[in-house]
Amino acid sequence: MGMFEAILLTVITAATPLLLAAIGELVVERSGVLNLGVEGMMILGAVMGFAAAQATGSPYAGALCAMLAGMTLALLFGFLTIHLVANQVATGLALTLLGLGLAGMIGEAFVGRPGVRLQAIDIPVLSDLPVVGRILFGQDLLVYISLALVAAVTYVLFHTRVGLVIRAVGDNHGSAHALGVSVRKVRYLAVLFGGACAGLAGGYLSLAYTPQWIEGMTAGRGWIALALVVFATWRPLRLLAGAYLFGAVGIMQFHAQAHGFGIPSQFLSALPYAATIAVLVIISRNRILTRINTPACLGRPFVPDR
């Protein structure tokens, strides 16, 4: 395996958790809800996925459990923000803090234990192709799922009635309500979908990326996913590009560290965070672009007058 191929492979693994978490949040925000708790849902997904994989020996059971964990937290968030119209920003922060706390508590028993690794699926013959073989046809299932999700979300959002309803609710919840759309139901479902995706993204970390449990192993990826959604101006295909770009930035630091270059490792570790700030600045400089694309009801509470 050549150097180039190795780097590409690691970029894919680094990008996948970002992509999974961000594609879920994209749908949530399209429906008008801002869930800042991605980091919390992710880390609970990571620890629960690890735990379930340990208990059953199956990484797929782990992935499923990770999704359920994310959805449980998302449901809590939904109840507060959709039913009790609590401030979405503050509730999202609460979700992150609670998720980090719960994961830390649950994970204590798993520190240092070897995990169950999600195996790559080698598609016979194809994965043996030179250069592209391993990259295109030798990934684990979740990589394919993340890509399929991007395609599915693109299709559903822009070519189906369900997607139209989601966008309508995010654009003007009052009008959607007047037309008889159940705004709360749509938002609950979107928030749950976002929770499942974030949980799965966490599960990917503890099952595939580094198959073990490390306290705080999400390391801000949930927040970066949130920034990616803004960066992508709420469009799935741009999100795909953004996630792979950030995957590359993350991997660059590893390779740079491996090769030395004399740059302190902390500086390289700070790269993804600095890059996040940089892309946010670049995208927000174009205010017209952001304002046209931002779901108009994002973060705004809705109380039906019934």
Binding site: L164, D171, N172
Partner: peptide
Amino acid sequence: VFQHFSLFEALTVAENIALA
């Protein structure tokens, strides 16, 4: 026909109509 239009600004005319 609503007074304060129940329209969705970010959507097309056809999409607005399809929703009803």
